[in-house]
């Protein structure tokens, strides 16, 4: 794996699927303020598989939240399919999330006292899918992350890794255009990690889902053909990974 070339901001004349322009995110105010994102520029085309790496606190999760339309920038622009998300109303951003984005949180964020199946069904509920179809798809997604037989378990009855896989199932159950995964293998052993990465790779390759994935682990990052490294809220490197599996 080596740096191949500086990835272009625009592959051709068309708008990228996702684009950050001088993105700045400041938390807090005054002396205690933190510049979690300090002028990020990058573009990601539809169908790409990008890994984001960087030390703890470098702004990876912050960037993911912005890309997932869960949070807004302090300055700069975030374009989704050429549309400035910063100009959208809250409900429009909710609809973007509903129809285009699957998000795996670093902290899972599952509904407590709610079965794995119901957790995975949740995004489909808001898409207005009939219950029977919803249940079928949710069970299928749980099967794909290796959790068949655990449908009726609540988060409290699942291990950390299993909860993480429920979170992944919830993100992929809608077959989103973009899968944003913040440390999706953070709690998994090597074997399970490999299974999950195979799943992610196939989603990207076979279904054309654009994947952006944060990871600490170099092994995991090497599954992605492109690796972006963060450092102190800036992009330190953005490289092609020819060894991608």
């Amino acid at each position: 794996m080596q740096a191949a070339r500086q990835y272009p901001q625009r592959a051709d004349g068309k708008a990228a699927l996702i684009e950050l322009q001088r993105a700045v995110k400041v938390y807090g105010g005054g002396a205690a303020s933190v510049r979690a994102l300090d002028g990020i520029d990058f573009a990601i085309q539809a169908g790409e598989f990008v890994a984001i790496m960087g030390p703890s606190g470098s702004g990876k999760s912050t960037a993911m939240n912005v890309l997932g339309c869960l949070d807004t920038l302090t300055a700069g622009r975030y374009l989704f399919q050429g549309v400035d998300v910063g100009n959208l109303a809250r409900n429009q951003r909710a609809l973007l999330r509903r129809h285009f984005i699957g998000f795996v949180f670093q902290g899972f964020n599952l509904l407590a006292r709610t079965t794995a199946l119901e957790n995975v069904e949740l995004p489909l509920v808001y898409r207005g899918m009939p219950a029977r179809e919803r249940r079928r798809r949710a069970a299928d997604a749980l099967g794909r992350v290796g959790l068949s037989g655990r449908e009726a378990h609540t988060p409290a009855e699942l291990s950390g890794g299993q909860q993480q896989r429920v979170a992944i199932a919830r993100a992929i159950v809608t077959a989103p255009d973009v899968l944003l995964a913040d440390e999706p293998t953070g709690n998994l052993d090597t074997g399970t990690s490999r299974e999950i990465m195979k799943l992610v790779t196939s989603l990207n390759r076979d279904q054309g889902i654009t994947v952006i994935m944060v990871t600490h682990e170099r092994d995991i990052a090497t599954y992605a053909p492109r690796i972006v490294s963060f450092l102190d809220g800036r992009i330190a490197s953005d490289v092609r990974n020819r060894d991608a599996a």
């Binding site: 997932g68 869960l70 999330r97 509903r98 964020n109 509904l111 407590a112 949740l122 808001y126």
Partner: peptide, 19 residues
Amino acid sequence: TERTREIGIRLAVGALERQ
């Protein structure tokens, strides 16, 4: 607190405020 998190989760997966 718990309900606020629940609302956050619902919003995150695409629920509208009014829903």
